[in-house]
């Protein structure tokens, strides 16, 4: 098999076509476009990057989005870890597959529908406000929609599954008898979590964090639909440049900056944890 040149080329050529024309060339084009002036069709300019640094709204949004995405990733971990632990180690295996399935359903339904679901829940006449009025807690509706909280809920909702599943995978490979042994030797719950469970599930936590961070920083639907006027998200700047003002070179520069910050953050996460990118997909 190793020496079968014909098979090798039959497999290699389609893969090369895919990666060269749809991954490598487009990203080179993205970089090249970001140095083109928007007015003319030739030349080299730094004006697109200068615009980013000179206009406060751009770089401020950029920094805010990055910090916010890190925050949502941490929040996602805090919510997901107990759920992943419960589904793999606590609940009876009889229910585990059913509950895991429930978990996957929102992912398959898609972001637009689930975010729209949150609009119907959080609106002024939405389900939550009507319920609170009904039980007499409030008289006037609370403004739950179009602010940073509703945006955070949306971002958390659409991304947390990508944290839960990798953590579940690593927890499944942790032998229960390790926990039992520690417990028999008198370790407290906290010690068991800190010394056994968390270190063992670290690869899953890192994988999940990387995917969640990337999804959140690159998301448009949740910030745009659920966020308010003050919840500026950097992807919105890219959309505006491409779809409203048609300044593609400026949009390309923003895109490249987004790609840069997300790659850099992921690289740091991999470095700190000593993992390889190869393992992220598993």
């Amino acid at each position: 098999m190793e020496n079968n040149k014909k098979v090798f080329y039959i497999l290699l050529i389609p893969v090369l076509l895919w990666l060269v024309f749809l991954i490598i060339v487009p990203h080179i084009e993205l970089l090249v476009s970001s140095f083109k002036p928007n007015s003319g069709d030739g030349g080299f300019t730094l004006e697109n990057y200068q615009a980013f640094f000179s206009d406060k709204i751009y770089w401020k949004t950029f920094i805010n989005t990055t910090l916010y995405a890190i925050g949502v990733t941490l929040l996602s971990f805090a919510v997901s870890f107990p759920i992943a632990f419960y589904l793999t180690k606590v609940v009876s295996p009889k229910y585990a597959s059913f509950l895991t399935l429930l978990l996957l359903i929102p992912l398959w339904i898609g972001e637009l529908v689930t975010i729209y679901g949150w609009v119907t829940l959080l609106g002024d006449n939405g389900v939550i406000n009507e319920f609170l009025k009904y039980i007499g807690v409030i008289d006037k509706p609370l403004h739950l929609l179009y602010n940073n909280i509703s945006m955070t809920i949306g971002l958390l909702y659409m991304s947390m599954l990508f944290m839960i599943v990798p953590i579940m995978t690593t927890l499944e490979s942790l032998d229960d008898s390790m926990i039992e042994a520690a417990s028999d030797l008198g370790a407290s719950k906290l010690t068991i979590f800190r010394r056994i469970i968390i270190p063992h599930s670290m690869p899953g936590i890192i994988n999940g964090s990387i995917i969640v961070f990337m999804l959140v920083i690159g998301d448009y639907v949740a910030p745009n639909i659920l966020g308010g006027k003050s919840s500026l998200w950097f992807t919105e700047q890219i959309y505006n440049q491409f779809l409203s003002t048609f300044n593609w070179s400026q949009g390309a520069a923003f895109g490249f900056l987004l790609l840069g910050i997300s790659s850099a953050t992921i690289w740091v996460a991999l470095r700190l944890s000593g993992q390889k990118l190869d393992k992220v997909g598993e």
Binding site: F21, L22, V25, P26, H27, E29, L30, S33, I210, I211, M214, L215, I217, G218, Y220, T235, I238, Y239, F242, W248, G251, A252, G255, L258, L259, S262, S263, I266, L277, V280, G281
Partner: peptide
């Protein structure tokens, strides 16, 4: 896996 979808969209559009 780690490239935001918006980046894939704009770079393929540009190319």
């Amino acid at each position: 896996l780690v490239i935001p979808g918006v980046i894939l969209g704009i770079s393929i559009l540009l190319a």
